[in-house]
Simulated scan of single mutants.
Amino acid sequence: MSAEIVRSVIERGDLAHLALFLWAVAASLLGLLLLRELTASNRRFSEFVQELARLNRLLSGQETGRARSWGGDRCDSAHEGHEDRDQLLRPSGSDVSGNGG
C-alpha cells in the first residue's frame, strides 16, 4: 500500500508531500520505539521495587516467620528510655541551663 502512495506522489511530482509523509512515518516509528522502551523500563523498575520490598521483608524477619523489632524490647512503655535519647541529642560540652559556662 505504501508503494502505491509513493508511486502516486512521485507521478504527480509533489515531493513536499512525499517528504512530509516520510517524516510522519519516521516520527511514528520513533514514537512506537520509545513507547516500547518506556514500557520495558517501567517493567524493570517495577521488578526492582518488588525486589527491594522482598529484601526489606527478608531483613525484617517477616519471610522467615519471625518478626524482628529494631530496639522494641528496650523501650516497652512510652516513658522509658528518654534519658538515653536526650543524652544523644544534647551536644557534648554544652550546658543544659543555657549559661554556656
Rank of each mutant, 00 (worst) to 15 (best):
M1Y: 13
M1L: 14
A3G: 12
S8D: 14
V9R: 00
V9N: 00
I10D: 05
D14P: 00
D14C: 02
D14V: 00
L15H: 10
A16N: 05
H17C: 14
L18T: 03
A19I: 12
A19H: 06
L20G: 10
L20D: 12
L20A: 12
F21Y: 13
F21I: 07
F21E: 07
A26D: 08
A26R: 11
A27M: 04
A27G: 03
S28W: 05
S28D: 12
L29I: 11
L30G: 03
L32F: 06
L33S: 15
L35C: 11
L35W: 08
L35F: 12
L35T: 09
T39L: 09
A40I: 06
A40N: 08
S41R: 10
S41T: 06
N42G: 14
N42K: 07
R44V: 07
R44G: 04
R44Y: 08
E47R: 15
V49Q: 10
A53I: 04
L55T: 14
N56V: 13
R57M: 06
L58Q: 15
L58P: 04
L59K: 10
S60A: 10
S60W: 03
G61I: 01
R66V: 14
R68N: 08
R68Y: 04
G72E: 07
R74W: 04
R74H: 03
D76C: 12
S77K: 11
S77G: 07
S77T: 14
A78H: 05
H79A: 12
E80R: 05
E80A: 08
E80Q: 09
R85F: 00
D86E: 10
D86P: 01
S94D: 11
G98K: 00
G100V: 02
G101I: 13
